[in-house]
Design a binder for these strands. Structure first.
Lengths: 396, 396
DNA sequence: TCATGTTTGTTAGTAGACCTTCCTTACTAA
DNA sequence: TTAGTAAGGAAGGTCTACTAACAAACATGA
């Protein structure tokens, strides 16, 4: 060996205290993945032949045929006859996902006063609506209201099979559907998904409402999966982030809580900003004190369009200030705004985009898309439905 | 059916233009995953019995025995005799990863003037060092210098098998090791990994230096994988982010480019900040104009400790300003600083942490760890080595 | 009109990966 | 000495996806 210096190097043993979250993978998991891939293609590309599916997935025709026959035996997929176009060779028999013959129950808990629910097809079309009033109930009583609403919706599903129940709720919620903390509902460490699954006899998925929104935009809105952030503006301000097709959860399942980032401080006041407003979180100057619906309505109330525009633009700049570091750090492809277009889709969005562009590397800001989400007022429900599609069928 | 309204729902067909990046999974991929899991445990927990491995991985003893015998036939693992402690039952025969009998070649391209390289064991101990001077060469000439350095290092590996070559380079680099753009080296769309793999006959992995740093802290430094950000301070400022054990790449492979987030603008000047300095990127007031090593040295030159402390604290506040939205959006667990401790590990880090805490939700900021990285001056090399471990053996 | 080539979907056989079950080995404890 | 326990290996079974080969059904061109 040539002249060398052998140093100790970083210590290694004992590092093991940080247990890495690895899980075994069996062939059957591979099978489940491939099965989900077939469904995914049928869902997004529409009816296809088995040979088409084989080409898109990279699997052989034999394997695809096998997967399709299983899916057909479960009723999830059906044959639709031969493809009309005349091409050379044996005509293809199309198979399609029976998106209209299965239902999903979706519930939106974002509102403090009432729960909104719907029965939807797998494509997100609303088949029936129901709602329930909370009347100030919290804790267990609120769970009972939710459970009753779910039963009502399940009954309204018209005897069609229900794939699952999806619930978007405010608060911090882990990936198993345990509500760690939802102060407005009085829920703490509540295993909501498990409890409702038990009570209803149907698989129930629960996630944060901003996260379900992001999932909904990804699944139904056609947003890019590599770097998507959805900012939801309602009573509060939240965000959901999808990277590489998966939701970002965060260390304490609290990813996306950007509503309480400080955007107005003493220095801003010295530079000309109005005094920071106190926030429900106990501090002052949070993004939520400017960007939430109540704040926006208060700020624009009684003002003409021009004056309102200026106010909204100034809020947009604050949003851009908070977004710029996130866009830079993650190299996001899309930032979507979800909320009333009359407030968000104008000077506010324009100012936000301009601010982000001005404060990030050209390479990052240039191709960034900042626009309104493609989902309408049922966005929250679509998100809850997407949660079920993702959790139960592997379709995103 | 009860009274229902059937609305159109979000359009679905045609969304398919956004092709989801799904890939088929075969049983052999499951095998590779499980094999990596066994190595992972041996690497981090040290020698274990086959039965131990079976318990940790969830696989059966039979399967683990099979995997271990394959790994032994490849020489990566060896039997170490029976476990000394006397317990009930047949004594366990320990197997261990031969971390000292394999080498990794690591090269750090962060410096503009010279390339630093080392031969390391799998645990990150330096066995030999070599370096090469660029003398202003760029483009193909720079690649030649790099290739020669790699050959020298491979020759210095003392006939022990080299698992691979890891290279951390500035610039935007995709996951296949193609340098999309590295202006300082004059590299654009250069398939560096493929070219060197071909030339050297050894698998070569190339990634952004901030990303390799993050990987190094995760692998060797024992940082948590669920929400880690490493900010590297050198000629410029970069960052690497590890979420759920995987590097964040971003839409254009440019994730982590936080050096050019604006942190000083006209408003800050009105509030008392000095004029924003022009940045190499063409704009002004970027984080890099304050936090890069040249900037920090310039700002503290000729000042006493107290005055320097104040300057460093003000830079730390700016860093905290940029970090707060990222910490909030991702609910990060750890932010590590990499660079000279005499500049970073004092008022600067303290001010950064205080600023982040003050500007984020208590739940998010409270448990956040902001500290110096655990890797020493060889951190860049360890990161490049970790890149090889990750890419070639699946060990992180 | 008829042979030819193409594409589809199925059948049969093979290799890989993990499992369950059962056995031997080797030790501790009573 | 006997019983109990744990480690490791051998045999056999199931599941998964692959390759190879083939029949069916069409378009095309001589």
């Amino acid at each position: 060996m040539s002249a060398t210096t052998r140093s100790a190097g970083p210590s290694l043993r004992g590092v093991g205290r940080t247990l890495r979250p690895t899980a075994k993978v069996l062939p059957e998991h591979a099978r489940a993945h491939n099965r989900a891939m077939v469904l995914q293609h049928l869902f997004h590309q529409g009816p296809s032949s088995r040979a088409d599916l084989a080409r898109s997935t990279g699997l052989t025709r034999v394997t695809v045929s096998d997967l399709v026959s299983v899916l057909m035996s479960e009723g999830l997929v059906e044959e639709l006859g031969v493809r009309p176009e005349g091409r050379v060779g044996k005509p293809a028999t199309l198979v399609g996902m029976r998106t209209e013959d299965f239902h999903v129950v979706a519930v939106d808990l974002a509102d403090d006063a009432s729960l909104r629910g719907a029965v939807m097809t797998l494509t997100g079309a609303v088949v029936a609506r129901r709602s329930a009033s909370l009347d100030g109930r919290t804790g267990d009583a609120a769970v009972t209201v939710l459970e009753d609403l779910c039963r009502e919706l399940l009954a309204a599903a018209d005897a069609r099979p229900v794939v699952g129940v999806g619930i978007g709720s405010p608060g911090v919620i882990d990936s198993a559907g345990v509500v760690i903390a939802a102060p407005n509902r009085g829920w703490y460490d509540l295993p909501l998904a498990a409890r409702l699954t038990e009570a209803l006899g149907v698989p129930v998925q629960v996630a944060n409402d901003a996260n379900t929104h992001a999932l909904g935009e990804y699944t139904y809105g056609g947003a890019t999966g590599s770097g998507l952030m959805v900012v939801t503006v309602g009573q509060g301000v939240g965000a959901g982030i999808v990277l590489d097709g998966a939701l970002v959860r965060g260390r304490a399942h609290a990813a996306g809580e950007i509503g309480h980032v400080t955007v107005v401080d003493d220095r801003d006041v010295r530079a000309g900003d109005p005094e920071p407003r106190p926030c429900a979180c106990g501090r002052a100057g949070c993004l939520e004190t400017l960007l939430s619906l109540p704040a926006l309505r208060r700020a624009t109330a009684g003002r003409g369009p021009e004056e309102s525009g200026a106010v909204l633009a100034s809020v947009g700049r604050k949003l851009g200030l908070a977004l710029a570091p996130v866009v830079s750090a993650l190299n996001l492809a899309e930032v979507l705004l979800s909320g009333p277009p009359e407030l968000l889709d104008g000077p506010l969005a324009e100012a936000a985009l301009a601010t982000v562009r001005a404060r990030t590397m050209p390479l990052l800001g240039q191709d960034l898309v900042l626009r309104m989400g493609s989902l309408d007022e049922d966005g929250a429900l679509s998100g809850a439905a997407a949660l079920v599609l993702s959790g139960r069928l592997g379709v995103t």
